[in-house]
Structure formats: structure tokens, C-alpha cells
Design a protein around this nucleic acid. Structure first.
Length: 554
RNA sequence: GCGCCUGUAGCUCAGCUGGAUAGAGCAACGGACUUCUAAUCCGUUGGCCGAGAGUUCGAAUCCCUCCAGGCGCACCA
């Protein structure tokens, strides 16, 4: 829609320059926007003001020249005028707007989706929580953002792979094994003092008891160095299974779980280091190996091999990202908790050293979640075991409300998540507002069927009966859907979908309260049924991207 | 001390990448169910866009300087 108008204007400007009415100016990107004030028409363009300084002419005069040379072969434009400092305001023909309905009915679940990605391969890595404990509410936000972003890109022409990186090779796994062992001993009667770095949650006890039930007390006598690695493996596997199950119930699935351990097995880290060494990015200070990340703007160089000979987490992470690129992805997207932001410059430095563009790796920071219960903050810490798990949130507020809540803010703004509010089935909870709109439309269509009015095909209704101003507003709102999706894809901002949905649902509810869809007037009813069904389709399409259910009844 | 994020209505937040008179939701107040679902709608109240200077036709948006809050600044992950 916007694009077709932009083309007309571009042609008009070109023809003006050709005729010498305008100096030969460089044509800037033509911005078409939807004016906030409906009196300013359906679309507005600021081109005349942009050109004013280059052309050294009064913007209103330029606007006039452009309008005089505007050719509209398909008759889109009802009215065009110059306003304010030099805006071009356009009102499109009603017929043109009504064609949107045809398009929606025609494309159904595909309506709104554009082939922006053109088949590019993109990998989205998210969650990637250490398997040392169940997922908590902080992980949940990243999970939803990653999942919805993947859905969004997939719907718009990208080939998307979702991946979870399992940090199963670091110290924290040892601490996990130890924690299980200490609980094991404790249950079997020993008195234990827990070190600082051990995990205290009840899930550790469960794993310990389970080992006792299956294998008895034989690990009491075995040397700790032998037991811990085994307990690591057992606990890691149990916890990872739990994580997968929680995610699945949250509507989040992955194409691939990538193990850090596997990376080492395949010499990914040592290969990486030797190749960086050849390129001259590695130097030694006698005890440790350093990576010259300052060569690409990092504030200081980073250690890759420690004094004790072990590679750092960073070394493994570079190897991991090299591995990702080697798998043929055109774009990598990492979704991180905002507390890791300090890590970005060094990773960007690393991928540039590997010969990639900084833009090939997009990093989305998701701010931490302040968990509240009835306005009171809830303290959380994985080590102490005091946290609200994703499981508990799912059980308490449900999948749809939880997901929607995480999508109502830009990901880089802090989010207050109040359990009491989220589980209320009331107007404080916007997810129901949107779902209700969908259910209402389904209900109308059901009612129409009962009265013997099956949903008519678009071609069998008379679109010019949709003459109410609210109907025009609804149609314009639906016409904006593809534009909104495009913006969300380009900015990688999924919250825009939620805001759009709230607005669309609002416009519909308002229409519903003012106009009756199914009446004695068969022709009018048919037209309105097609209209509201189009709204239903758009709601359903958008909710599907959010991974939120679109109910037939509420 | 350095870096990143945030600061917009009483509260929680949008603001389409520089546009026209800054918008929603919640809260408060007043109205609308004999009606296709009142989980809804209609109306009213509410603003020095943290502060100051700058860039230009035009700034909540961009540059600079402050102020406040959050988060980082490991041979942890």
C-alpha cells in the first residue's frame, strides 16, 4: 500500500526533474506515514520538505509541482492536498480499501507475511541456561522473545533454526555434581556444611534421593574425584530433561541443542586457537594466552587460555560461533540477558577477526524481570534455591497470559511481572481483551450459521455496503498489519505485534458495540460477516506468531 | 572511575527510526446489557517528554554536558 503510493510519488518527482520544474536532485528514500490525525488523510508524505533545502524552493511550492505531475493510472487516489508546512496528504478511494478484504480472504493464514528474508538462513540462539537448575521466570522472558522472533522471521521468508547452547563443560557443572553428592551424604546421615558455590534448591535433593533409590549408598565410600563427574552427568541430564519439558509446555521448542562438551570433543576450541594464532591475533605473556580483541574495538584484550592451561568460556564461545557460521547461516541472532551486555564487544571483535561482518551477529538484550506478587518484590537466586520457576508460573497464570505479558514491553526495558495481576482473568490482563475479540467474532459467525447464513464468499457480497466510518477504520487497521510486521522484522522488535493486536481488538470491540453484524438485511449482513471474518483472520495470524491461543469461545 | 540500558499522565508503558494538536492500558469519576458474549463500549479528568544548551523549516526522537535508577567492568559462566 505504502509502497505503491511511494512509487507514484517517485515517478512524479522524476518527471518534474525531467521537465526542469525541479533542479536535478538526489531522490531520497520516500517516507509514507499514517498521520496521527485522520483529518490529514489516509497517508502523508513529507518529500517536499525534504527536497526544499536541496532544491532551494519553498516546500509548499515543491509540493504543488509534484502534485501537478502526479499520474495515478489505477485511480487509487480519491483526494490529494497540500497541508501545513508542505505535507502531501492523500485520501485513497473506498473501493481500494475494500480490496484489502479480498486480499485477506484470499491469502488467509498467509495474509500479512512478506518475503523479506528471501530464503536467508538465520539461526536464533536463546535460553541457553546452564543445566544446573530448573528454568526460572527470568529465563522465561528470553524464551518467549526468542521463540516469537523465530516465528516472525519464519513467517516472513527466513529459514530459521532455533538453538539452545548447553554450557555443560564449565566449573558450574562440577559444583552441580558436588551439590548432589553433599545432599546424598546428608540424606544418608552425614552432617554437611555447604560451600558457597553449591546449589541448594530442593531439586538437588530429589536427584540425590533418586540416586539412593536406584544405586544405594555405594558412593559414600568412593573417592569424591570419581563420583563428582558421574553425578554431574546424571544431574545434568535430569535437569536438562526438565528444562525441555518446561519449555515444551511453554510452547517453546528447539531445532537443536548444542553441547559445549561436544565442541571440545571435536577439537573445536584448539582448532580455533591455532587458526587465530596463524592470523596473529594471539599472544602469550608467558603464563596465559591472550586474544587481541582490542584490534576490533574491545576495551582490553581477553584471556583465552588460563594459567592452569584450561581454555576460558570465551574461547569456547568463539569456537561455537565459528561453528555456527560454518553451518551456513547468513545471520546469527543471540538473545542474552542484559546482565551480559559487557560481553558484546569482545564477541563482536572475535567474529570480525574470523572474517565476518559485525552485522552478521545481532545480539538482542532482554532486560531482567522484576518479579512481584501483589506489588511486593520476590527475591530470587539460583544458588540459594529461592526462585519462582517457569513451571510455577505456567501452573499459576497459564501459558497464554504468561507469554503475552512478556511481549508487552520492548525487550530492553525492565519488566515488572506481577503474578497476581497476570493470573487475574480481568480487564487488567490484555491477553483476554484480544482473545475475547476473536471469540466474539467466532460467536457471531456461529450465530449466523445457525440462522442459515453461511459465511459468504467475498465475491458474493457487495463491498460498497461497508460505508460506516468505523468500517473504514477497521479496514485501514487491517491494511496496516503487513506494514507493522515488516517494521517488526526489520527492527527485530516483537512487542510491536502485541501493541498492534491491542489496537485492532479495540477498534473491533468499538465497532461491535455500535453496529450489529447479523441483521434482517441479508446483503448488509453478508458484507459485515466478510468484514469481521477478515478481522478474525488477522487476529488469528498475529496470535499464531505470538504462540498464543486464539479461542473460539470464552 | 569507565561502559551499556532506562527516565514520557498518579501507576505500567507505546511513540512506526526527525513530522502536523505527544498516545494507550490501569487507577478515579459519570453513563450504556429486552441486543451477534458487559472479559465489552461511550464520555470526563490527568503532561515542563529527567534538566540545560545545540543542530533545522520542525526534536520525546539526533549531537554535547549534567542529574537519577538499573546492570556490567574475571584467568566465572
Amino acid at each position: 500500500m505504502k509502497n505503491r503510493l511511494a512509487d507514484l510519488i517517485a515517478n512524479a518527482v522524476a518527471s518534474c526533474t525531467q521537465k526542469g520544474l525541479l533542479p536535478d536532485v538526489k531522490l531520497p528514500h520516500i517516507e509514507i506515514e499514517v498521520p496521527a490525525n485522520p483529518e490529514h488523510g489516509d497517508y502523508a508524505c513529507n518529500i517536499a520538505m525534504i527536497l526544499a533545502s536541496q532544491a532551494k524552493q519553498n516546500p509548499r511550492a515543491i509540493a504543488k509541482t509534484i502534485l501537478e505531475n502526479l499520474v495515478d493510472p489505477n485511480g487509487l487516489i480519491e483526494k490529494a492536498q497540500i497541508a501545513g508546512p508542505g505535507f502531501l496528504n492523500f485520501q485513497l478511494k473506498d473501493d481500494f480499501w475494500r480490496q484489502i478484504l479480498l486480499q485477506i480472504q484470499d491469502q488467509r493464514e498467509k495474509y500479512g507475511c512478506l518475503n523479506i528474508g528471501q530464503g536467508k538462513k538465520v539461526q536464533v540462539e536463546f535460553v541457553s541456561a546452564n543445566p544446573t537448575g530448573p528454568l526460572h521466570i527470568g529465563h522465561a522472558r528470553g524464551a518467549v522473545v526468542g521463540d516469537v522472533l523465530s516465528n516472525l522471521l519464519q513467517a516472513n521468508g527466513y529459514r530459521v533454526s532455533r538453538e539452545y547452547y548447553i554450557n555443560d563443560a564449565g566449573n558450574q557443572m562440577n559444583n552441580l555434581g558436588k551439590s548432589v553428592l553433599y545432599r546424598y551424604r546428608e540424606i544418608l546421615g552425614e552432617k554437611i556444611e555447604f560451600p558457597e558455590n553449591c546449589y541448594r534448591g530442593d531439586y538437588i535433593k530429589d536427584i540425590s534421593s533418586d540416586i539412593i533409590n536406584k544405586e544405594g549408598k555405594r558412593y559414600l565410600t568412593q573417592a569424591e574425584e570419581e563420583t563428582v563427574p558421574y553425578f554431574n552427568a546424571v544431574a545434568g541430564a535430569v535437569i536438562l530433561e526438565g528444562i525441555k519439558q518446561d519449555l515444551k509446555d511453554f510452547g517453546v521448542t528447539f531445532d537443536n541443542y548444542f553441547s559445549e562438551k561436544e565442541l571440545y570433543k571435536e577439537n573445536g576450541v584448539s582448532d580455533l586457537l591455532s587458526s587465530l594464532q596463524k592470523q596473529g591475533f594471539i599472544y602469550s605473556d608467558g603464563e596465559t594466552l591472550w586474544f587481541k580483541t582490542t584490534a576490533y574495538g574491545d576495551e582490553k584484550d581477553r584471556v583465552v587460555i588460563r594459567k592452569n592451561g584450561d581454555p576460558t568460556y570465551f574461547a569456547a564461545d568463539i569456537a561455537y560461533h565459528r561453528n555456527k557460521f560454518a553451518r551456513g547461516f547468513d545471520i546469527l541472532i543471540d538473545i542474552w540477558g542484559a546482565d551480559h551486555h559487557g560481553y558484546m564487544p569482545r564477541l563482536w571483535a572475535a567474529i570480525q577477526a574470523l572474517g565476518h561482518d559485525k552485522d552478521d551477529l545481532k545480539i538482542i538484550l532482554v532486560q531482567l524481570v522484576n518479579l512481584l506478587r501483589a506489588g511486593e518484590p520476590v527475591a530470587m537466586s539460583t544458588r540459594s534455591g529461592e526462585f519462582v520457576t517457569l513451571r510455577e508460573v505456567l501452573d499459576e497464570v497459564g501459558k497464554d497470559a504468561a507469554r503475552y505479558n512478556f511481549l508487552m514491553r520492548r525487550s530492553d526495558s525492565h519488566l515488572d511481572f506481577d503474578l497476581e495481576v497476570a493470573k487475574k482473568q480481568s480487564n487488567e490482563n490484555p491477553v483476554f481483551y484480544v482473545q475475547y475479540a476473536h471469540a466474539r467474532i467466532c460467536s457471531i459467525i456461529r450465530m449466523a450459521c445457525e440462522r442459515g447464513m453461511a459465511l459468504p464468499a467475498y465475491k458474493n457480497m457487495n463491498p460498497s455496503l461497508l460505508a460506516q466510518p468505523e468500517e473504514r477504520v477497521l479496514i485501514k487497521m487491517m491494511a496496516r498489519y503487513p506494514e507493522m510486521l515488516e517494521g517488526a522484522v526489520k527492527s527485530l522488535e516483537v512487542h510491536r505485534i502485541t501493541f498492534y493486536l491491542n489496537e485492532l481488538a479495540g477498534v473491533f470491540h468499538s465497532y461491535y458495540n455500535k453496529n450489529k453484524v447479523v441483521t434482517e438485511d441479508m446483503a448488509l449482513s453478508a458484507a459485515r460477516l466478510v468484514l469481521v471474518d477478515a478481522v478474525r483472520i488477522v487476529l488469528e495470524n498475529a496470535l499464531k506468531i505470538l504462540g498464543v491461543n486464539a479461542p473460539q469461545k470464552m
